[in-house]
Simulated scan of single mutants.
Amino acid sequence: MSDQPQSEIRNYLLSKKLPIDVLMEVEDHFVTQINELQNHEQQDFNQAFDKTKNSWQNELKPYWNGSLSLEDVSDFMRKVRKENEISNLQFALKWSVLPLIMIFTGLLLFDAEKFGIFTISILIAMEIAVFINYLHHYQDFKLVKKYPNYTLTWHQHSIFIFIIILSPTINIFERFLNSPEKYQNLLLLKGNISEFIFTLLPILLLIFGSLFSYSSQKNYLRQIQKVKPYLKHLKLSN
């Protein structure tokens, strides 16, 4: 396909506000469908393009579906978003088991003070690991700022979760440093169940949030390598 028709397809899809990695896949489908219509039904480009747009109209049309989010989103993007979230959730659920096993092992092996330090060390290490990964690939992550008018990949919305959870992280550290015996006893179920839950929940939030953020970063880096050749078609921010 020549540059002009390809540009028309690209501009049309850009108007639909698709993430660029998704747009690239949809563009391939558009080109394939248009070529098939031109070759098998002897249609010119405009006819084939219009027919292809009509076939995708319902999937690409943004609308509010009555959910808590007031954002207008197409069914196609809801499907993509759900798949991305499930991927990150599965990663976080799978790997959160390891730090939890370590924490509950420390609960049985150490006295209160050592247990507090041990738990804090695990949680800090997880936060630092995600932050180091961000710094190591900073040139790739900063592309989001260079192209603020576009969503390069849906994963970019979750790469900073590890920063958002810093506040509960600090709260957890203060608890374990100031009252290690109290929280060790609570985690040993030497208290009521509600206190155990409210003690465990912030720890789970930090572990899960760090892993979810890391998974998003990992998936972003994979997708951004596909997107980079396409950036020449996008407008830089002023």
Rank of each mutant, 00 (worst) to 15 (best):
I101D: 06
L98P: 03
L109E: 06
H136S: 06
H157R: 07
D140E: 08
I164D: 11
V130L: 02
H155S: 12
S179V: 00
F91H: 11
P168F: 06
I161W: 01
H155A: 06
I117Q: 10
H137N: 15
F160W: 01
K182E: 12
I124N: 08
W95R: 01
F162E: 02
M126E: 11
Q139Y: 10
I120R: 09
F160Y: 13
A112I: 06
S121R: 07
K146Y: 05
L123G: 12
F141N: 08
L93N: 10
T169G: 15
Q139R: 08
F162G: 02
L135K: 12
F104Y: 13
E113G: 00
V97R: 03
K142D: 04
F104S: 08
L152G: 03
L98C: 05
I101N: 09
Y183W: 11
A92L: 05
F141C: 08
T153M: 07
L143A: 10
S179N: 14
I128M: 11
Q184R: 14
L93C: 10
Y150Q: 07
Y150S: 02
Y150V: 00
A125W: 04
N149C: 01
N133T: 06
I101E: 10
F104P: 05
I172W: 01
S179E: 14
P99W: 11
F110L: 13
A92K: 00
L123P: 04
S158F: 13
A125Q: 05
T153N: 13
N185F: 04
R175L: 12
I103Q: 02
W154C: 01
K145C: 01
Y150P: 08
F104W: 05
V144K: 15
I159K: 06
L152Q: 04
R175Q: 13
F115M: 07
Y138A: 06
F118S: 10
S96R: 02
V144Q: 15
F104G: 09
R175C: 08
N133I: 05
D111W: 00
H136A: 14
Q156D: 04
T153R: 05
Y138T: 11
E113R: 14
E127H: 14
Y138M: 09
K145E: 13
E127C: 10
P180C: 11
Q156V: 02
S158W: 09
F141S: 09
H155D: 13
K94F: 15
I124H: 04
L98K: 07
F118P: 07
I170W: 05
E113W: 05
I101V: 15
I159D: 00
L135W: 13
S167W: 12
